[in-house]
Structures are given as C-alpha cells and as structure tokens.
C-alpha cells in the first residue's frame, strides 16, 4: 500500500513540475518584451528593430505573396457568380473608365486653379508626370493591432522606395513605409498615425487630413484647415497638397467633404472626408515612381503607355 501511494505522489509531483509555468522564465520574457518596446519606441524611424523588421519581411513577404495568389481565385468566386466571363471583364473596364472620368470631374476645380496659379503649366506637368508601378495587396494588418497597414507584392526590385505615394484608380491609398526586395509595407491614409497635406479643390485652401483608424466606409478622415475663417462646403473634393521633398505627390484625389464641424474651442475647422478609395476591398494599386525608373515589371508611364 505505501508503495502505490508513494508512486502516485511521485507521479503527481512530476505532473506538477511540468504544469507550473516557471516564474523566472515568465519574468525574463516580460522583460525581453519591455526591452523590445523600449528599443523600438525610443529609436523611432531608425530604431534597432528596423533591420529585424526587414529580415523578417524578406522571409514572410514572398510567403504572403504566394498565399494571396493561391486564395485569390477563391476570394473572387462571389464576383464570378454575379457576372460570368466576358461580362465581368466588361464591368471591370467600365468601372475603370468610370473611375477615370470621376477623377477628372473631381480634380477639375483643382486643375483649373492650378493652371491659373503661379507655378503654371510646366510645374503641373512635371508633378503629374509620374510613372506608376502596378502591384497587388497581398496582406492586411489586423485591426486588433490598431494600425491600418497593408503589404503589396512589389519592392525595391520593382523600383519602389520609402515615402513613395500609393494610389489606385479611385484616389490616394497611402505611402510606402519600408521595402524589402519583393514586398513593401504601405501606411494607409486611414491610419491614426497618417497625416496628409490636403487642399480643398474649389477654394485651394490647405489643411491636414488625419486618419481615424477605421476601415468602415462612413469612418472617413478628418480635415483640419489651416485658415479657420474658411468653411469647406459639402461635396468639396480634397486633393493632396504635396511637396517635392515630402512623401505625397500633389493633386491626387483623397475624398470629398461630407460634414463640417466648427467649435469655439477648436482653433480650426474640422471637416469629415469620405475617402474615394474603398479601403476594405483594396486589390490593385499603383506606386508613383519617377519616370524612367528601372523595374522588374511593366511600368505605366505618365501618358498611359506600358513600358
């Protein structure tokens, strides 16, 4: 009898030792996490974690691209059911044409003002003379991480570098944060960290467009105008203000004003912008690169030709 009892105790003992999470290891890992956070937070854009990010990105990027390519036929099944074969092609063409026309209308005010404004035709031609590198979105950052970022399947080999403007045929998508050889991470304009210089197309007033961190269609963006005397009108189009050194190219449509708030406490007007881009269904995007960039794929030149 004592024998069996002892064996049972020993057994329990062993199980106990296996189950008990070792406090020392737990605390060591907590400290390691805190160290990572401190390193990354203090370092900012050139933190010690950037090389690690890049290395992990080089490994995960191609895997994400392949996975996205594998699941794409399945995720597009619903649209196949709605519109088969040629019909779906036709709809896509019409949608592209529609977007192009809408863009033209949206930026008409801005363009007219632009032509009249001092920097003139040549500057506008230079600014808009951008080539596009086409890419597809292969991975989305989860909303649980409270940031709106995506991975695209074009990287430094396609001629993409940090701070380049990313658009699709509806308007501004975001900017490139960092690149690996075959992928790039894009910060969407809806991210709470994202601030874009915006200009109201009809009045040429400038302001800053802040992301609100949500992908919901009505979530939108916030526009704060620099001049608090100006009230943007509803349905005014907002385009990027842009600068030669900064990340965003000028004249890219961002969205339209849906609501305007002004309060005595706030020093500037706050308008809610509904983005033209549907961020929860991003697929094909273009990265604006200087003309003549060497790329591993066909580049859409400023005049619409493929190169």
């Amino acid at each position: 009898m004592p024998d069996t009892r002892e064996r049972r105790w020993r057994g329990l003992d062993r199980l106990d030792a296996r189950n008990k999470a070792p406090r020392s290891l737990f605390i060591a890992l907590l400290l390691a996490s805190a160290t990572l956070i401190t390193l990354d937070y203090q370092g900012g854009p050139d933190s010690a974690m950037e090389p690690a990010r890049r290395a992990v990105g080089e490994a995960f990027g191609p895997v994400e691209s392949v996975t996205a390519a594998v699941v794409r036929p399945f995720t597009s099944v619903p649209s196949w059911l709605r519109s088969q074969g040629a019909l779906s092609d036709e709809i896509r063409d019409l949608q592209a044409e529609n977007s192009a026309l809408r863009n033209e209308v949206e930026t008409a005010g801005f363009d007219r003002n632009r032509l009249e404004s001092y920097d003139g035709l040549t500057q506008a031609a230079q600014d808009l003379g951008q080539a596009l590198v086409p890419a597809r979105v292969v991975a989305f950052g989860p909303s649980q991480s409270f940031s709106n970022t995506v991975t695209i399947d074009a990287g430094s080999e396609a001629g993409i570098g940090p701070d380049m403007t990313v658009v699709n045929n509806d308007g501004l998508v975001g900017r490139v944060l960092r690149v690996t050889r075959s992928t790039a991470t894009v910060l969407l304009v809806t991210d709470t960290e994202s601030i874009v210089g915006g200009r109201v197309g009809s009045s040429m007033e400038i302001g800053f467009v802040h992301g609100r961190g949500t992908l919901a269609d009505n979530g939108g963006l916030d526009l704060r105008l620099v001049d608090d005397a100006v009230v943007p009108a509803e349905h005014d189009t907002v385009v990027t203000w842009g600068s030669t050194g900064g990340p965003y190219q000028p004249g890219v449509p961002i969205g339209e004003v849906t609501e305007v708030y002004s309060s005595l406490l706030e020093t500037s007007q706050r308008a809610v912008i509904k983005p033209f881009v549907n961020f929860s269904a991003l697929d094909v995007v273009g990265v604006m690169v200087p003309t003549g960039t060497t790329s591993d794929r066909a580049v859409v030149e400023a005049d619409g030709a493929l190169r």
Binding site: I37, D40, A52, A139, S145, T149, L187, D191
Partner: peptide, 23 residues
C-alpha cells in the same frame, strides 16, 4: 508575438504582441 510584431505589414511598436502573447 515577436513574429506578429515584425512580419509585414506590422507597423506598431515592436514587442507589444510579444508581451501580450507571453502573458
């Protein structure tokens, strides 16, 4: 956690998911 923190398209401060998943 570290993988979630570093794999693209993650852009938050690294170490946060590591802390959460360790706990």
């Amino acid at each position: 956690g570290v993988a979630l923190d570093l794999a693209p398209p993650a852009d938050h401060v690294a170490g946060r998911w590591a802390l959460a998943l360790t706990v």
